[in-house]
């Protein structure tokens, strides 16, 4: 989880079942990115909780940090990418469905915070590398087979 201010860019490489969530305030040119591995912090077993990897805790924390850095709650928008199913298995247990579950959880969390999703590229079965420019608010998505697309 990290924050960036224009003209810097923020990126994360090799998103598979993980979901990359970008939350931004266009006027302040401020954006934050979280790399979500798991849908819910209740899945954590003991030990220290790394809030950056669970959908429910990471989205909240990202919003908090954005606001601390001067973003305005009402101006926040989101773009999301990832949540692919990298391997196709005959028996789709819960573990195998982790990508779609991450996407559902992220959307649920954003909805409860009333942050609109202005662009999404989720699901499918290829890995993604994403890069966000807080100035233009364009999310660049690169996949191995389909090249680069923009949201």
């Amino acid at each position: 989880m990290n924050m960036v201010k224009a003209p810097d860019l923020i990126r994360t490489s090799g998103l598979g079942s993980c979901v990359g969530v970008v939350i931004y305030d266009q006027v302040k040119e401020l954006a934050g990115l979280a790399h979500i591995m798991l849908p819910d912090s209740s899945l954590a077993k003991g030990g220290l909780l790394n809030i950056a990897k669970f959908a429910d805790t990471a989205v909240k924390e990202l919003v908090n940090q954005l606001i601390q850095n001067g973003s305005r709650t009402y101006a926040l928008k989101a773009k999301i990418a990832g949540g692919a199913q990298m391997f196709q298995f005959a028996n789709s247990s819960d573990l195998m469905r982790i990508g779609p579950r991450n996407v559902e959880a992220v959307k649920h969390e954003l909805a409860s915070l009333k942050i609109p999703i202005l662009g999404e590229d989720v699901g499918g079965n290829s890995g993604r590398t994403i890069e966000f420019n807080p100035k233009t608010c364009i999310l660049k998505i690169r996949t191995v087979n389909k090249g680069i697309s923009e949201l």
Binding site: S13, L15, L43
Partner: peptide
Amino acid sequence: IDMVGALISFGLIEFSQV
């Protein structure tokens, strides 16, 4: 056949819970 990050993170899901 894909990016390492995308593939391996899948195998780390169990670990990422602890």
